[in-house]
Structure formats: structure tokens, C-alpha cells
Design a protein around this nucleic acid. Structure first.
Lengths: 151, 151
DNA sequence: ATGTGTGCAAATAATTTGCATTGAC
DNA sequence: GTCAATGCAAATTATTTGCACACAT
């Protein structure tokens, strides 16, 4: 990690109210350097190269801290278990990042245009899944009433 | 289930090469009647009302069969584990439904317009996450070479 | 010194699998 | 009759938690 990156990391920790530990710094460094969309196990394996004694629990705890602090994001919000789409009409989703609820939304409301079926690289599109991430009205009201409760 | 629904279910099973069993029919019926985005456990609980002896394993097996046959969809593709987004630049995802790989794509390529920050119902948008679901070039080639291998 | 962070092991949750039995075709 | 589907229990996989000790502030 360069000096600039280390400084940036310290700033991020300060803003998030997190202590600057060696493990945390290596996890951050691994995330920055890794290509793709790593799972906790993959991050753990890489961190282990620098810190053989690191535990998987520490990786999980720090990933959650990073995500809750907005330092990193998840690829798509996880609900712990699989969810089946029972609404057979074409629609997209409003996903509240605070209370994790999913609401359906009509594609018209978003006003998205048609996307080409054939994309660069030869990928053939079959369906567009749009998640609108944000804060639902209920959580906005809750946040206004009790500031600091939104994660 | 009405007679028409039962007939439709038989047709779907025939197309997918699935036997028409009582359990399978009740699971289908529950999925059609349920609002929202149920988890396997929720489906199981409802099916149990009609068939107390049903097992959770049967529910899982049938949900996968339905999803693989295209009779239902998942809310968002699950990778079994959480995935961290390490690409800090704004982008969307190409998701191959055959090999499950995720590739990043520039928002420009999709040509999506700006979406209003405030949506009906008071939802405040913070981010738009777009997943383009389809078949990647590699899997298209594989399918051309060995038809029937795409799930 | 104080409290947060870490590592470990155990606990829990989610899902899958093997296998004997049942039921659809 | 034949083979796919089911139920059950055990196995796996993913994630979380409690707690004693170490380290950052």
C-alpha cells in the first residue's frame, strides 16, 4: 500500500469511527487490489497470505463494517436466503437499504429505454433487472424522528 | 386452484419434462398466490398447511426445478455467499445465467437515462443497480457446440 | 486505562445430499 | 414395471456469536 493509500485509509476509518488496526488495513488493501466480486472466503484467503493468524470471523466483521460505513458496497443486497419472484408481470424493484424491504415498481415509472439485445463482447441479453437502492418513506420518517438509526 | 390453473400447471410440467405430483402442484399454487418475494422457508410453511408431511428438501428441489425451467425467477441471482463490489467506479453488471459469472459494464453502453431522485411513494433513490441477465459469449459458443447443456 | 478489535470455538442459518420408499406415467 | 419424486436425516456451506485476550487511542 502506498503512503497515499494508507493516509486515505486512515481518513476513512476516522470518518467511520473505526480504529486503524493492521488486520483492517490489510483487508482494505486486499479489497482495493482484488479484481471482480470476491466472497468473504476469497478475501480471507488473500489476507491470510499477509497475516496467517487472521480469522474468518474478523474478515466477516470488517466486511460488514466497511459496507455499513459505505466504504464498500455489496454486489447485490443479500437477504440471507433465496427469494422467489412471484409477480409474473414485468417490473423492477425498490430496495430500502435501511429496512431491506423490496417493493415492486412499474418499469414505466423509471422511464428506462430499450436496451440492445446484443451487447459488446457478444453477450446476449435476455432480461434487465433494475434495483433502485435508497431509503423508503417509512425509514426516512424514522430517521427524521430518531437521527442516527439508519445503518 | 381453478381448473384453468391446473391445466396450465400440467402444460408447464409437460414442457419442462416434470411429473405432475401433488406436492409440486401445491408448491406452484402457493407461489402463484403468495404476495411479495418469499424465501424457501416461507413457501414451506404455506405448503405445510395443505400437506403437513411435506419436507423442506422437497420445497428446495422444486423451487430449483421451477427456476431452472423458467417457470419462476429468483429476485436476484444468488451466489451462495455475499460478494463485495471492489470496482469503485460507477458501473453495472452483465450476469450470465448459465455460468453465473459477473462482468462489469460501463453505464454508457446501456445508455440509461437519469432516473428521478424522488420516486412515487416517497422513496428516495440513492443508487441504481442494473443487472443485465443473459448468456455470455462463451456459453453461447458452448451451447452451439453441445446443445442442451445450458440450464 | 479504556474500550474496541481479534481469534477461537461453538452456535445458528441456509442449503444440499444420500438413500430407502412412494407414486406418476 | 420403470424411473423420477419424496421424506428423512445427515452433511455441507455460510454466517454469526460469546468470550478471553491483545492492541489502538
Amino acid at each position: 500500500m502506498t503512503q497515499g493509500e494508507a493516509t486515505q485509509f486512515r481518513t476513512l476509518c476516522e470518518q467511520a469511527g473505526l480504529a486503524v488496526t493492521h488486520q483492517r488495513q490489510v483487508i482494505y488493501e486486499v479489497l482495493c487490489s482484488i479484481e471482480g466480486h470476491p466472497s468473504p472466503e476469497e478475501v480471507y484467503a488473500r489476507v491470510k497470505r499477509s497475516i496467517p493468524s487472521v480469522s474468518l470471523a474478523t474478515v466477516y466483521k470488517n466486511l460488514h463494517l466497511f459496507i455499513n460505513s459505505g466504504i464498500f458496497e455489496q454486489v447485490s443486497l443479500h437477504h440471507g436466503s433465496m427469494r422467489v419472484e412471484t409477480n409474473q408481470t414485468r417490473h423492477h424493484h425498490l430496495l430500502c437499504t435501511s429496512c431491506k424491504t423490496i417493493h415492486d415498481i412499474d418499469p414505466e415509472v423509471l422511464g428506462l429505454p430499450e436496451v440492445p439485445r446484443e451487447l459488446p463482447g457478444g453477450f446476449r441479453m435476455e432480461r434487465l433487472a433494475v434495483d433502485v437502492l435508497g431509503i423508503c418513506a417509512r425509514c426516512q420518517a424514522r430517521e427524521a424522528a430518531e437521527p442516527g438509526t439508519i445503518q
